[in-house]
Design a protein around this nucleic acid. Structure first.
Lengths: 146, 146
DNA sequence: CCAGTTGGTAAAGGCTGTTTACTTATCGCG
DNA sequence: CGCGATAAGTAAACAGCCTTTACCAACTGG
């Protein structure tokens, strides 16, 4: 009815398919437990380790939510928690070797998808979407902060 | 770490903010029960009524999920179910007057946001995003069907 | 030193969806 | 016509991911 919020729909749906495709590729590499939500988490890790509170901020969820996700990934062997030498309360979340392999598989799958899309849709389209989407996002975020 | 699937991130996040903004505006108009997920449902209604199975297909969820959402919207008075005269098993889902008002409020809010974004980011950007995203989506969907 | 802040965990529950398992009505066809 | 296959819908359980509320333990600044 009454042509609708198509922009939101298009964005939501293509993002979902994009992620689903990457995850499927990672599954095919043998990491069958990986789920969509992990991508968001792994994006924010680094080699030195990150506190889960920082992850929570970056993901914009509560620290409990971040902690739950980290615990699950830890159980599955993709992450590990080590004590933070500079603060007795804190722990640093680090990616394991297995986690790194899965991440690399996903990265590779994304690159491949990217090249394929570029060749089919034109090399400029993905760049345009990324940059345009970035600009849109930036403005929407300033709106959020009143 | 290792620059990541930023495209997926940008798309997901801007879509979320976009919808959140529309929903907030609808709340401000007095329809405080409206939630994000309703937008997806309302987009697929028409005046004659639609079967919930059809809604499920369009939303790409199970018929149970569609049925649950319809039931909730029915309880809140935004939708109604009437028997389908052409099939004794089926019911037609129709929007009520109240539902229509809420929808129009959302539509208006979206139009306003659109004009604002156009004036800030340039009139071409939203069009580019919608069209480019549409092209991307179309291709991703052909990939899904092997 | 101690009041306040910060890092983190625990438990319960909300929201949106899925899976599994039906019931009932319609349709195609021998 | 009758009957098996299919389609519309409901019901119940539970998964995934997040939140709120409530804590504890360690750090920090005055």
């Amino acid at each position: 009815m009454l042509e609708p919020n198509t922009l939101g729909h298009v964005l939501t749906r293509s993002a979902r398919l994009l992620n689903a495709r990457v995850v499927a590729a990672v599954h095919a590499e043998g990491f069958t437990e990986v789920r969509d939500s992990w991508l968001g988490m792994l994006r924010h890790l680094d080699a030195e380790g990150v506190r889960s509170t920082v992850l929570a901020e970056r993901l914009e969820v509560t620290k409990q939510a971040a902690g739950q996700l980290v615990s699950e990934l830890e159980r599955k062997g993709y992450l590990e928690r080590i004590p933070d030498p500079t603060d007795g309360r804190a722990k640093l979340v680090r990616i394991t070797e297995r986690g790194l392999q899965a991440w690399l598989a996903g990265l590779q799958a994304f690159r491949a998808l990217e090249t394929e899309l570029d060749s089919v849709l034109g090399a400029h389209l993905l760049t345009t979407l990324r940059d345009g989407g970035g600009a849109l996002l930036a403005h929407l975020e300033t709106l959020e902060n009143h």
